[in-house]
């Protein structure tokens, strides 16, 4: 899905835990995530810490959409 959406020329960031799969399916912008059942969160943290974590990851993903790259890059 990542590859087909990017084919339209729309920058796309893949947030995934198993980044090796992400690379082999052809994602160009990748943000590694926390764990498979909760990629963008962590139930082991308290509420505030978890929110800070998710905010940081979302902002990182947004920033990478605004970053020019020349090869597959993990942010």
């Amino acid at each position: 899905m990542v590859k087909e959406i990017e084919r339209y020329g729309i920058p796309i960031v893949h947030m995934s835990t198993i980044t090796t799969i992400s690379e082999s399916v052809g994602a160009n912008r990748i943000v590694p995530t926390i764990a498979i059942p909760y990629p963008v969160g962590n139930p082991n943290l308290d509420k505030q810490e978890e929110e800070d974590l998710r905010k940081d990851m979302v902002n990182r993903a947004l920033d990478c959409l605004a970053t020019e790259i020349t090869e597959t890059t993990q942010f």
Partner: peptide, 22 residues
């Protein structure tokens, strides 16, 4: 799926996408 969703996003003028996977 990617082709269909991408087409809609392109036509709607979406500038960027976050795709999450588990």
């Amino acid at each position: 799926f990617g082709t269909e969703i991408g087409k809609e996003l392109k036509e709607a003028g979406v500038d960027g996408v976050i795709l999450t996977s588990t």
